[in-house]
Design a protein around this nucleic acid. Structure first.
Lengths: 180, 180
DNA sequence: TTTGATAGTGATTGGCCACTAACTTTGAGG
DNA sequence: CCTCAAAGTTAGTGGCCAATCACTATCAAA
C-alpha cells in the first residue's frame, strides 16, 4: 500500500480513536492497531501525534460539511436549514464524527495551556469555514446560523452524555425538526 | 488545616486544572502544586484521580446552578430566562467554569471506552439536575429549556475556541440577549 | 511529659507512551 | 536475476505519571 493510502487510513482510524479517547487519552499504539500497522510506522507517515490529530480534526470538519452539502444541495434559506438539521440529527448515529468535533474544541484549551497557540488558530479557522459555509447556504443571516449551530452543539453534548434517541431529554428538539 | 478544608481547596484547584487540561492532560502533580501541598497527600484526601475529577465536576455544576439561581431569584418564565441568559453570558469571563463543563461531557465517552459506565451515569445525573432546575425556573416547558441550553452549549464552544467577546462570531447572539 | 491522632512529606516504583534507530521485506524496472 | 527504493518491523530509550510506603511534624488531651 502506498504511503498516501496509508496516511488516509491512519486519518480514518485516528478520527475514531481520538473521538473516543480524546487527545491525551488516545495512544498512538491504539491508532496503529486499528490501522493494522506497527506503531512506529505512524511516525514515518506523520511528523508526530499532534499532526495526526490535526489531520483527523480537519477531516472531521470537512466530512461534516460534506453531509450538510449533500443534504441541502439545490436548496436555500429555510428549506436548506431544515434539510441540514435533519442531516445533523441523523449524524447522531455516528457518535465518532460528533465526538471528534467536541474533542477538537476542548483540545484548544489544553493546547493553549501547553503554549501551542497555533492549535487554537487552526481550530477557529476550521470552525469558521464550516460556520460560514452553512450560514451562506441558509441565507446568510448571522442569527439564523447561530441558532443552527447552537442546537448542533446541544446535540453534540447529549450524544457525548450518551442519551439514547428515545430519552426524554431529546423531546425539546421537536420545534426545530419535525421530519415527517 | 483540617482534612475537610484541604479537600475543599483541592476541589477548587482541580476544577481549574481539569478545565484547562482535561482529565488525561492534567497530572495530580499539577493539582497538588496549585493547592500548595505534596502530590501523594492528594491520595490521602481522595481515593484516586477519578474521585477528584468527579468532585470537581459536581462542584462545577452546582456552582453553575448557584449563578442561575442568584440571577433569577424571585423571577419566573421569560424574565427568569432572560436573567439567566445574561448571567451565563457573564460567565464567559470565567473560562474555567465553562471549560470544566465541556471536559465533563467529553470525559464520558473516554470513560465508556475504558469500561467505566458509571461515569456516564453520574454525568447524566448532574446534567439532568441542572437542566430540570432551569426548566422549572423558566416555566417548565421542555422546548424553552432546550433552546436555553442549546445557546449555552454554543457559548461553551466559542469560549473553548478562544473567541474574544468582540469577535464577529458573537454577533449572532443578540436575539436571545440584549442586555441594555 | 507521654500518648495518640491527624496533617503532611520524600523517596520510590511499576507501567505507559511518544518517539528513534537500525534492520528486514517486497516488488517494479532494467 | 539483480538492484534500489519504498514499505514496514523489532527493539529500545527517556520521560512522565498515578499510586504506595515509610517516615516526620504538630498539637491537644490525659
Amino acid at each position: 500500500m502506498s504511503a498516501e493510502e496509508r496516511r488516509e487510513s491512519v486519518v480514518r482510524a485516528a478520527l475514531i480513536e481520538f473521538a473516543r479517547g480524546g487527545y491525551h487519552g488516545t495512544s498512538t499504539e491504539a491508532i496503529a492497531r486499528r490501522v493494522g500497522v506497527s506503531q512506529p510506522y505512524l511516525f514515518r507517515l506523520f511528523p508526530g501525534k499532534q499532526a495526526i490529530f490535526a489531520a483527523a480534526a480537519e477531516r472531521c470538519v470537512e466530512e461534516t460539511w460534506r453531509v450538510f452539502d449533500e443534504a441541502s444541495a439545490g436548496l436555500s434559506g429555510e428549506e436548506a436549514a431544515d434539510a441540514m438539521s435533519a442531516a445533523y440529527m441523523s449524524l447522531v448515529e455516528d457518535r465518532d464524527q460528533l465526538m471528534m468535533q467536541m474533542q477538537l474544541y476542548v483540545s484548544v484549551s489544553a493546547a493553549r495551556e501547553a503554549g501551542e497557540e497555533d492549535v487554537g488558530e487552526t481550530a477557529r479557522r476550521l470552525w469558521e469555514s464550516l460556520f460560514d459555509r452553512v450560514r451562506i447556504r441558509i441565507g446568510g443571516d448571522m442569527r439564523d446560523a447561530t441558532r443552527f449551530f447552537a442546537y448542533g452543539m446541544l446535540i453534540n453534548t447529549m450524544v457525548a452524555l450518551g442519551y439514547p434517541p428515545e430519552h426524554r431529554m431529546w423531546s425539546g428538539f421537536d420545534e426545530c425538526e419535525e421530519p415527517e
